[in-house]
C-alpha cells in the first residue's frame, strides 16, 4: 500500500497519469500503467493478432471472413484509437488483402479510404502509393498508377524499407506506358545505394540500374536498421526520472 507521503507511480507508457494497473509484455516483468494506457496497450496487442489472423484467413481464400475480422477490430478499437494509428494499419492490410484477391476495384476504394485517414510517416505514403498503383494498373489504368506511385515516392522515406518492389513497379509502369523512367528518379536510386551501403550498379539506363538495385537489396535491410551499425555502447541511455 502506498504511504501517504509517497509519490504516486507515473505510468511509463504515457508519462502522464498515475500507474494503477498491472501490465507486462510476454516474458517481461510486471509493470504498472494507467487504466487508459492499459486499454490502449491491450488493443495494440490485439491489433497485431488480428492482422496476422486476417492475412492467414485471406491466404486460405476466406477473404470476406478476413475483412470481417478487420472490421470487427476497428469497431472495437474506435474508442481508444485516438490518433487513428490502428485504423491506418488495418487500412493497409485491407488494401493488400483485396489486391491479392484480385478485387482491384475494392482495393482502389480501400486505398482511397486509407488516404482519408492521413499519413504520419513517409513509409505509410510509400505503401499507400504502391498498393494504389497495383490496383490501378490491374484495372487497366497504368498512367494513373504511375502517377500515384510517383506522388508517393516524391516524399523521401528516411528508411527505404522494401524499396525494391517500388523500384520495379516504377520501371514496369514506365515501360508499359512506353516511356523511360523519369531521370528525376536518379536521386532515388543514389539514395537507395547509399542507404544500403552498396555500389551503384554500372548499367547504362536508369531502369536497368533500378532493377539491379531491387535485386541487390531484396534480402537486405538498410544500414540504419542493422544492429551491427547501431552498436553504440558509449551513448548513455536516458534515465526514467529525466
Amino acid at each position: 500500500m502506498q504511504a501517504p507521503d509517497e509519490k504516486p507511480e507515473i505510468c511509463w507508457s504515457c508519462n502522464e497519469n498515475e500507474a494503477t494497473e498491472p501490465f507486462a509484455y510476454p516474458g517481461a516483468p510486471l509493470t504498472l500503467v494507467c487504466a487508459r494506457c492499459l486499454e490502449w496497450l491491450s488493443m495494440r496487442d490485439e491489433l497485431e493478432h488480428v492482422l496476422g489472423q486476417s492475412l492467414e484467413l485471406a491466404e486460405r481464400g476466406h477473404i470476406d471472413e478476413a475483412l470481417e475480422r478487420l472490421n470487427a477490430f476497428l469497431e472495437k478499437s474506435r474508442g481508444c484509437d485516438h490518433d487513428r494509428r490502428f485504423a491506418r494499419r488495418v487500412a493497409h492490410v485491407r488494401a493488400m488483402i483485396l489486391s491479392d484477391a484480385g478485387r482491384y476495384a475494392e482495393a482502389e476504394q480501400a486505398c482511397k479510404a486509407w488516404a482519408q485517414l492521413g499519413f504520419t510517416r513517409v513509409s505509410e505514403r510509400w505503401e499507400h502509393g504502391f498498393e494504389t498503383a497495383l490496383a490501378l494498373d490491374a484495372l487497366g489504368r497504368p498512367r494513373e498508377a504511375l502517377a500515384a506511385l510517383e506522388d508517393a515516392l516524391g516524399h523521401r522515406d528516411p528508411y527505404l524499407f522494401s524499396v525494391g518492389e517500388k523500384l520495379v513497379a516504377l520501371v514496369e509502369l514506365s515501360e508499359k506506358l512506353g516511356q523511360p523512367v523519369d531521370p528525376k528518379w536518379q536521386s532515388l536510386a543514389e539514395a537507395v545505394a547509399e542507404a544500403y551501403g552498396i555500389e551503384m550498379p554500372a548499367h547504362e539506363s536508369l531502369a536497368e540500374r533500378m532493377l539491379a538495385l531491387a535485386e541487390m537489396t531484396r534480402e537486405m535491410l538498410p544500414k540504419c536498421a542493422r544492429d551491427s551499425e547501431n552498436d553504440d555502447r558509449t551513448r548513455k541511455p536516458p534515465q526514467l526520472d529525466e
Binding site: F161, P237, L240
Partner: peptide
C-alpha cells in the same frame, strides 16, 4: 506462403524500434 505480407506487418514495428532504441530500465 506469405513472406512479403508478413514483412510488411513487421516493417512498421522495426521503424518504431529504431526510433525508440533504448531498452526500458526494467
Amino acid at each position: 506462403r506469405r513472406p512479403r505480407k508478413v514483412e510488411k506487418l513487421c516493417y512498421p514495428l522495426l521503424e518504431e524500434c529504431l526510433e525508440n532504441p533504448w531498452q526500458p530500465e526494467w
